[in-house]
Amino acid sequence: MADYKLHKEQLEINGYSITKPLISESTLVNLKKIVYREEKSYAIRQLVNKQPEILEVLFKEKSFRELYAKVCGKGYFLTKAIYFNKPAMSNWFVGYHQDLSISAKEKQITKDYVQWTYKEKQWGVIPPEGILKNTITFRVHLDSTDETNGALHVIPKSHVKGIIRIDEHFKKEALGKEVLCNVEKGAVMLMNPLVLHASQRSVSASDRSVIHLEFCNQEIPMGWLERKSVENDKIF
């Protein structure tokens, strides 16, 4: 039996944790069909708004429900859903960063909510640190990923440093030793959005597709753009 309690502890201590494969092959195939029903793209934002079946399909998997129950428990809800794919031989890389921006229903100037942006017809804003500390990301891997196809590099425990300024003075070495996160197909990588992470170019013939889901237990004054209940909709 999987030790989901251990994953919760690793997430709290290191800012991330990687499970063994827990999503069945049939479910992975189904998820890809649902994703590509919308569009064939490197990134699809508001994924669950566009394809609500995604949550239902995932939560039918007993192992995923058990992981979610142990890591999040009651009171959490979906706040963001994105599909990412780094196709074979992609030549772009993403430098070290934290996932600071959240998706808001509307722009509302509020204390401690800063750096408003408007991209792809949606508002983004950096919330107070407490919102990010109470957010948990589930990266559901539809493909295996390693150093050849853009696996994430993370700096363990960097999430406890709060919001880190990334500028010409930023030195990742000062924050700790980076770790390469190899993740098997059907596995889930758990992350705190404040943990520093990056990804390299792909030199592989394999895609690296991921469903990125963020859950939080805090409401925000301007409302979450993608808020979806997990418990009340009888998914969980």
Rank of each mutant, 00 (worst) to 15 (best):
D3W: 08
H159A: 10
T79Q: 09
V35M: 09
I220E: 11
T27F: 10
K133G: 15
Y118E: 11
I136L: 11
L152D: 06
I126P: 04
I235F: 03
A174H: 14
E184T: 05
K80L: 03
Q218G: 04
G150F: 06
S63N: 07
Q218Y: 06
T137Q: 09
I54Y: 07
S63C: 00
P128N: 12
L142P: 01
K70I: 11
P128S: 12
L190A: 07
G130I: 09
V154W: 11
L190C: 06
T135E: 08
K20R: 09
I155E: 07
A88M: 02
G73H: 01
D207K: 10
V94T: 06
V188L: 11
T117K: 14
I102E: 12
K8D: 12
H153N: 13
D112T: 02
G162T: 11
C181D: 00
P21C: 14
R45P: 00
V179L: 15
D99Q: 05
E53D: 12
L22E: 08
Y42G: 06
K70T: 15
L67F: 02
K172V: 13
K171A: 11
K32M: 08
V140E: 02
I44N: 01
T148Q: 09
K107S: 08
N49Y: 00
Q200N: 14
V48A: 01
H7R: 11
K177D: 13
G75D: 05
T137G: 07
T137S: 13
I131E: 11
L22M: 15
V125H: 08
K50R: 14
S199L: 10
V35C: 13
P193C: 10
S204W: 03
H153D: 13
D167T: 02
N192L: 12
P21L: 13
Q115G: 12
P127S: 11
F93L: 10
Q51D: 02
M89I: 01
L31E: 09
K105E: 14
S202D: 06
K20T: 05
L175S: 07
V48N: 03
F236W: 15
H169D: 14
K107Q: 15
N14L: 14
F170C: 05
K32G: 07
T145R: 00
N30H: 04
V230G: 05
K234A: 14
M189E: 13
A205T: 08
T110S: 12
L180C: 04
P221A: 09
R65L: 10
A81C: 04
K70N: 15
E226W: 00
C72G: 11
V230I: 15
E173Y: 04
V48G: 02
R45Q: 03
F138T: 10
N192Q: 15
A69Y: 00
E226P: 09
C72A: 12
Y4H: 06
S144Q: 06
K161L: 13
D112L: 01
K177E: 15
E147D: 09
L194H: 08
F236C: 13
L47T: 03
P156C: 08
V154Y: 08
V140I: 15
Q51W: 00
P156Q: 09
I18T: 13
E219C: 02
K119F: 03
Q218E: 14
Y96D: 04
R139P: 00
D143M: 02
D233L: 14
S17N: 11
S229H: 08
L152H: 09
A104T: 07
K171Y: 04
